[in-house]
Simulated scan of single mutants.
Amino acid sequence: FKDEKLDVAVDAGNGSAAAIARVASGAYDIASADMAALMEFYGNNPDTPNKPVAVMMIYSNTPAAVMMLKKSGIRKPTDLAGKNLGAPIFDGGRKAWPIFAQANRIGPVTWTSMDPPLRETMLVRGDVDAITGYAFTSLLNLESRGVKAQDVTVMAYKDYGVKQYGNAVIVSPQFLDRHPEAVKGFLRAFARGVKELMANPKAAIETVKARDGIINPALEERRLAMVLDMAVLTADARAEGFGAVDEARLRLMASQLSDTYKTKVRVDAAKLWNASFLPSAEERDIFKSLKKK
């Protein structure tokens, strides 16, 4: 950011809904938020001014998944019919479940709600048959509860017909209008940061530790590797280019979300996405870092 002559302060977030609200209120200029949450905001707040606009895709695929212990005997999506699934009521994987269920022809299931810290605990105790959530979070949480990764079955939504996007960089439309060059510089710096992160993950984690001294570097290195594998360095990202989207795919996501979430108005994908601030394809080619290794 300094090389782009930008003075950037980074604050911790508290979920996508809060990040979107903070940018919409004008308290923040830029944030990272889940595209499904942004679409839901658009669909349920049609008259709200200053709705944030997504300008760069970070997660080309949602990391949402349904997970269960292998000893449950659940081997394929249709085995989930009639089972008891658990997740917080606001969990993105739970909210997108109807899309996953329709794509895989899964019969009715029942849901148990809980606070996020109890999700994996209830799966281990057998209170629920399966859970939904971000795989890279739940797998590490299960491990901390004594469950090995090889004893967990993961059905990633992206591998079972749900082609939704994940987190994106969102910006206040007022900031876009007033400071377009700053936004372009921010995205160039962001793309460069991703490249440097991939080239030296340990250094990236140490930078985070300097800001948050209580993190476990070894654990966060593993989490980072999982995030890259599940959401960033995917086949869709290779096809579309890091940071960009396939507009037909984005429209399909908006249509599916409008139906599934039963938003007040149908979501118009064109209104919440603006690719004109993106760096060049060369500047965004994070896959070159892989070729050099």
Rank of each mutant, 00 (worst) to 15 (best):
D3K: 12
L6K: 03
V10W: 14
D11E: 13
G13Y: 05
S25H: 02
A27D: 14
S32R: 04
A33Q: 06
A37Q: 12
E40A: 05
T48S: 11
V53W: 09
A54N: 10
V55C: 10
I58Y: 15
N61V: 13
T62Q: 12
A64I: 00
A65W: 04
A65I: 00
M67K: 00
L69E: 01
K70W: 13
K71G: 13
S72F: 11
G73D: 11
I74Y: 13
R75N: 15
K76G: 05
N84F: 13
N84V: 15
L85H: 00
D91W: 08
F100A: 06
A101M: 07
A101V: 01
A103R: 10
G107K: 06
P108D: 11
P108R: 01
V109M: 10
S113D: 12
M114R: 07
E120L: 09
M122N: 09
M122T: 03
G126D: 01
G126H: 03
G126R: 03
I131Q: 13
F136K: 01
L142Y: 10
D151G: 15
V152W: 00
G161Q: 04
K163V: 06
N167H: 12
N167R: 06
V169D: 03
F175L: 02
D177T: 08
P180R: 04
P180K: 04
G185Q: 05
K195G: 03
L197T: 09
A199Q: 03
P201L: 02
I205P: 09
E206K: 04
R211L: 05
I214Q: 10
I214M: 12
I215R: 02
A218F: 07
E220T: 01
M226K: 02
A235K: 14
A237S: 15
R238N: 14
G241W: 10
R251P: 13
M253H: 04
A254S: 14
K271D: 13
W273D: 04
F277R: 01
L278D: 00
R284S: 07
S289R: 02
K293H: 08
